[in-house]
Design a protein around this nucleic acid. Sequence first.
DNA 1: AGAGGGGGCCCCGAT
DNA 2: GGCCCCCTCT
Length: 754
Amino acid sequence: MPKEPDFIHDLNEAQQRAVRHTEGPLLIVAGAGSGKTRVLTYRIAYLIQQQKAAPNDILALTFTNKAAKEMKERIQQLIGDEARRLWMGTFHSVFSKILRFEAEKIGFTSNYSIYDTDDSKNAIKQLLRENNYDPKEIRPRTIQRLISDAKNELIHPDHYQEKFVHSTLDDITANIYGQYVERLKHNNAMDFDDLLVKPIELFQQHEGVLEKYQDRFKYILIDEYQDTNHAQYKVTNMLARKYKNLCVVGDDAQSIYSFRGADIRNILDFKSDYEEAVEIPLEQNYRSTKAILKAADSIIKRNDSQLNKTLWTDNDMGDAITVLDNYDERDEANRVANYIQELKARKGYGYNDFAVLYRTNYQSRVYEETFRRKGVPYQLVGGLSFYQRKEIKDVLAYLTLLINPDDDTNLIRIINEPSRGIGNKSLHDLMAQARAGNQSLWRVLENVGEIDLYKPAEKSVREFVSMINDLKKDLKNGRKLINITKKLLEQSGYMKSLVEENSPKSMTRRENILELQNAISYFEKNNNNPSLSSFLQEISLITDTDKYDEEKPAVTMMTVHAAKGLEFPVVFVVGLEEELFPVGSRDNEEVNIEEERRLFYVAITRAEEVLFFSHCRSRYKYGEEQRKRRSRFLDEVSPDVVRTETGASIKQNSNNLNGDQKESSDSGSTKIEYDWKKPLYKKKNRSSNTTRIYYDNPDEDPFQVGARVEHNVFGPGKIISRSGQGEKTKVVIYFKERGRKTLMLRVAKLQVIG
DNA sequence: AGAGGGGGCCCCGAT
DNA sequence: GGCCCCCTCT
């Protein structure tokens, strides 16, 4: 065995143990900021340096493509160029690559399309229509969510019937689920969940294929293990079964993706799943000040933490956390911008040292406006990603059609885009024909002469087919992708219609298309074997977080989810209000308050030196002003590390969370104090003789989210959300028999029941 | 067939 | 405040 590399002495004792423990299952419980990326990087370099494995024997699954790329670069610095041959990436990208090799074995071609959430929602909407359900009553999003959950739990459509049918919704889902799976297969398409589920099917049906990959991946590492779902657990469990060299890194306190099926039990049960597993905790935090760490600890200890670890740091105490108390979101954004300018001027921070973290993407808008107005450079991460934009999806749909003609969903997307006279009626006729003959829409288009179709539309179809066939020929002849793209933009009339529109919107779209062309050229130059299908599959999996550039001199704005794994000297956690952070409940689902708390914990632990919390007393939502109560999390945080802007300690109240705030004049300054006794709303006279209206006094108002109510026409139901105030208060109610209704509280005849 | 206007719904997070 | 759907008119 070669001598141990010098680089191992860069690590602390626990980190070294984690690196040296190469054989058998290993659980590294890595607290926030404890250097886990470093451990993973060094561990991989160590495996190679000690000749335990060649680079392509190692599979490392990360949470973002960006993390994979960075780790690869760091490993390259430790051991040299051969690091490029590591298998490293997100679950989705690694398994999509494997599926490209093995697709034929499970009835797909290697040119399979990848559907994003919108694509699968559209496919489901289409199926609902075909099954005579009204997509307005049965929302595609709901069905999509249920199907996705089932897939991640590895529940087959046939078993969904057995398992879940006890309500109308489950019944419909069971019905649609089977058809959806079939439809995707017909389209030669996989959704995001399939990229995890199909490999399992593949391995179950082909023992030899499983063994091939078991032998290939002799060492497996998984980052952010607390956020893996059942399918991810299963597929890696299968792969690691032979050599059992599975090293997982995670932190149960940072599990924030349960909506994606992440199952915290995967990490909690690791030691019982893998009996000989060794657990190594990393407890020294290198990132944050003591004050920040104390705030984080005071939050997380309110949850039932299940893996033992105690974070500590040698860093300084640091400044107290400042709580900003704002009138509304404009005020909030202004104040944040001012602090950024001030800290930059006084303490010498650069713009890229700052991050604004929020719970929901729509909060970014006010910051964009404010920062632009004040000349604060920013980069926005997340929201509507580049590849979800209409014009980008359109162009990609054209390209997809060239290699996957059976993909009806993408074909329908562009068959009349730009409009070429193949309208709803004609499309409907064509689709009917396709379904009758059990063939893809493209086959019908190719043989359009054989069916009865509106003549002008038929002519358009012929032109469309010959245009696509011509492009296909170019592709076959090895013409460059970028040139094919340019040609299709011209021949389809797509560019022309954007030019003619000549609006600000169409200008942006043209710019975006140019950016896509750059991406295609770049891909073509930087890949040895650039195929259209690998391009399309790769970019389907690129996320906005992958594009975040920490060197760019700009303030970063992103959701807390997107900030996972990142760190910033100065962090603003904004919008700390009830019904926002923690988020408000939606549909019939209860908010997982412990997960919201973990999310807040993640937000806090992104900060290295300076941390701000911020909340607004009122905020616009759906164009309406709403009064907001500050987040309960502000009452949970250790009071000795938080201060108001004037340096006073904030008053907290652990049992009454809906206190108001008032200006206090006792110090002569504009010091802000909180008066928890004063109700949030002024009392007004009550009115109405049918339903008692309580909207003026929230303490007595029984019509709160979650309340069970009865309506004299719609019957029993549950309040799922509430908006507006006073007379304009509206509630959304889910009625057992009638579905969702939005009602004015003032006029609805409602009674609280049960 | 397609443009344009009005109404309803919505926006929690993301591979 | 914005998106999507449906309706109506040309």
